[in-house]
């Protein structure tokens, strides 16, 4: 590494002469060693999934969750240093709470991403701190229904409010990824951690960009998410892992606007399909190789 020995990597608040912050780049390395996390935004919801690498046989199965609920409608998953992620989630919960205190309404996903992006960025500025060793994926559903002020009394006109702009839709699924530099973008599909390259390649094959009829449904997205985590794990076969998944749908979907863990039955079905799809691929490859032998 060209940065070593130059002295420009010794503290956060020092730029190298070519305009880089090496401490941030080292933090990205910490992320690249972590278990793969992905997020998929589809037309009727968001799915978050993480490859939880088993570090000890003494750990209880299914305990030690990696996906956190930040507010009723918001979930966060991350790759990298787990204690840093726990602190990130604490802060995200504080931000969501403080938004509710002032505006008496749930925080929109975009605003949470913006605030957490700002928080991560602050940790790249000072001598006394180090950057976060995580990349976080934030998924949320902003209510498509009309919401009042928390605690208000009364309803307004029985005929409904006048002067609304007709035909416009509001709210919906949102997905953001925040990196150690504080950089954040909105995504249709996001992947980070060790298997991100393979995962991104798979995500790009999905039809996520359109909101129309042809695009992926939430249940399909759950199955794709499971498959992608299995594909991404394929290069790291020697280590065991657990799959953890959560989802968020709109008010008329399975989670009714809440961030929840994917039910066990659906997760197991998704895992079964994921394993089957991997086996099928292996078989095909074997066949190809057989063909070559025959040549």
């Amino acid at each position: 590494m060209t940065s070593i020995g130059t002295g420009y990597d010794l503290a956060n608040s020092i730029f190298s002469p070519d305009g880089r912050n090496f401490q941030v780049e080292y933090a990205v390395k910490a992320v690249e060693n972590g278990g793969t996390s992905i997020g998929i935004r589809c037309k009727d919801g968001v799915v978050l999934a993480v490859e939880k690498v088993i570090t000890s046989k003494l750990l209880k199965q299914g305990a030690n969750k990696r996906i956190a609920t930040v507010d009723r409608h918001l979930g966060v998953v991350y790759s990298g240093m787990i204690p840093d992620g726990r602190h990130f989630i604490d802060r995200a919960r504080d931000e969501a709470r403080s938004w509710r205190d002032t505006f008496k309404n749930p925080i929109p996903t975009a605003d949470l991403a913006s605030r957490m992006g700002g928080y991560m960025q602050a940790y790249t500025l000072y001598q006394s701190v180090r950057p976060f060793g995580i990349t976080a994926i934030v998924g949320g559903w902003d209510s498509e229904l009309e919401s009042g002020v928390d605690g208000e009394v009364g309803r307004g006109p029985s005929v409904g409010a006048g002067g609304k702009t007709p035909g416009k839709k509001y709210g919906g699924p949102f997905l953001y990824m925040i990196e150690p530099s504080g950089l954040y973008w909105g995504y249709y599909g996001a992947a980070t951690g060790k298997g991100r390259q393979a995962a991104k390649a798979e995500l790009e094959k999905l039809d996520l960009s359109a909101d129309g009829e042809s695009s992926l449904t939430l249940e399909e997205a759950v199955k794709e998410a499971a498959r992608i985590i299995y594909v991404a794990h394929d290069d790291n076969k020697d280590k065991d892992f657990e799959l953890e998944m959560s989802w968020i749908s709109g008010a008329d979907g399975p989670t009714k606007g809440f961030h929840q863990e994917v039910p066990k039955a659906l997760r197991e079905e998704a895992e079964r399909l994921a394993k089957k799809s991997l086996e099928d691929e292996d078989e095909e490859e074997e066949k190809k190789e057989d063909d070559k032998m025959e040549e």
Partner: peptide
């Protein structure tokens, strides 16, 4: 735009 006219 979203909620039209309202009185509190």
């Amino acid at each position: 735009e979203r909620y039209g006219g309202q009185v509190y």
